[in-house]
């Protein structure tokens, strides 16, 4: 419990737009708070009154199953009042503008807006018009901070400390908000990050990403050789149109994570995936269900991390996270 005394501080930010803007201490605060909240989900009555009277609106402009469910559960377990809105929009201008929708929702006196949106920077845009707090549940190819935080919580539970650890992120780095948030979060905590994927999926100047840069390695076997964890990104098969890789079988052969590939990795190396998985493309069936996989604990941690984020954004102290 000494841990909890140490972190008895408030989170001073109004919004959570990304991990780029957070300091290492703030990331630690969120992870420690999440650790405290984890226990709530294990009770028979999975509810604390921490956010009673707080209203949260979940705006999902892109399809999402687990992130949306995870936020909704987090809100319910904190006793917040929440409403959800889903709308699939392609990036064409039609219907009501984002600004108008958001202002309308705020006019109904919402305290926190959780949003997923297909445009990079959409949350920054929203903060120009809203008084409510904005929590980023994924913006375009920019950031997905709560996903990275839950990945990091999973790693921390396994490792105890981040210092000196090595994580390899594999797949479509270029189009991945999960990768960007993980790179910011992990490098700030002192983790060495390696990126691996075909050059068509590697953004320009990828090595300059994060705090202090990352390693880029195109050879999968070399990329996993010293990894304490691998984080496998979902391959978006719909991107096949833009010819980022020639075929599924070639991708599986060169960048798919199989037992054979993992024989090159240290024995303790764990396997993460933000889901939804394409089994048999970026990850083999054996690995997905194997002993190294921590994919379901990631999902469990997702609820705790989102409880922590909502609680801290609403102004809660980390020590109060134990409230019954």
């Amino acid at each position: 419990m000494s841990n909890r005394e140490r972190i008895d501080v408030r989170f001073k930010r109004k919004h959570l737009l990304g991990l780029e803007e957070l300091k290492a201490e703030e990331i630690s605060l969120i992870l420690d708070t999440a650790e405290n909240f984890k226990e709530v989900s294990e009770r028979a009555i999975k509810k604390v009154p921490a956010l009673r009277g707080i209203t949260v609106a979940n705006l999902f402009y892109e399809p999402s199953t687990r992130t949306k469910l995870s936020f909704e559960l987090a809100e319910k377990r904190l006793s917040a009042d929440s409403v959800s809105f889903s709308k699939s929009t392609s990036s064409v201008k039609k219907g009501e503008s984002l600004r108008d929708t958001a202002e309308n929702i705020e006019a109904m006196k919402v305290d926190i807006v959780v949003m997923r949106h297909g445009s990079s920077g959409a949350h920054k845009f929203l903060t120009e018009f809203l008084d409510a707090s904005v929590v980023n549940a994924g913006d375009g190819q920019h950031e997905h901070p709560t996903q990275a935080l839950l990945d990091m919580l999973t790693l921390k539970q396994r490792w105890g400390s981040f210092e000196g650890k090595k994580v390899t992120i594999i797949g479509d780095i270029k189009h991945s908000r999960v990768a960007r948030s993980n790179i910011w979060g992990l490098t700030k905590m002192g983790v060495e990050v390696t990126l691996c994927g075909p050059p068509t999926m590697m953004p320009v100047d990828a090595h300059r990403m994060g705090e202090g840069g990352v390693r880029v390695e195109y050879d999968l076997r070399k990329a996993v050789a010293e990894a304490d964890a691998v984080n496998i990104l979902r391959i978006q098969l719909e991107r096949q149109e833009s010819k980022l890789f020639p075929s599924r079988r070639e991708y599986l052969g060169m960048f798919g994570i199989t037992e054979e590939v993992l024989r090159n990795a240290p024995g303790e190396c764990i396997v993460m995936h933000p889901g939804p998985m394409n089994r048999g493309v970026e990850i083999s069936q054996e690995v997905a269900d194997g002993e190294r996989a921590v994919i379901l604990p990631q999902v469990t941690n997702g609820v705790a991390v989102r409880m922590a984020v909502l609680f801290l954004i609403a102004g809660g102290k980390s020590s109060e996270a134990e409230i019954n």
Binding site: G121, R180, S242
Partner: peptide, 21 residues
């Protein structure tokens, strides 16, 4: 340039905006 939104370089990578080389 395809769907490009800004100059391709470190900042397009950082911002997650499609680049125009």
């Amino acid at each position: 340039s395809a769907e490009g939104l800004m100059n391709e370089g470190y900042y397009s990578t950082k911002l997650g905006l499609a680049g125009i080389p």
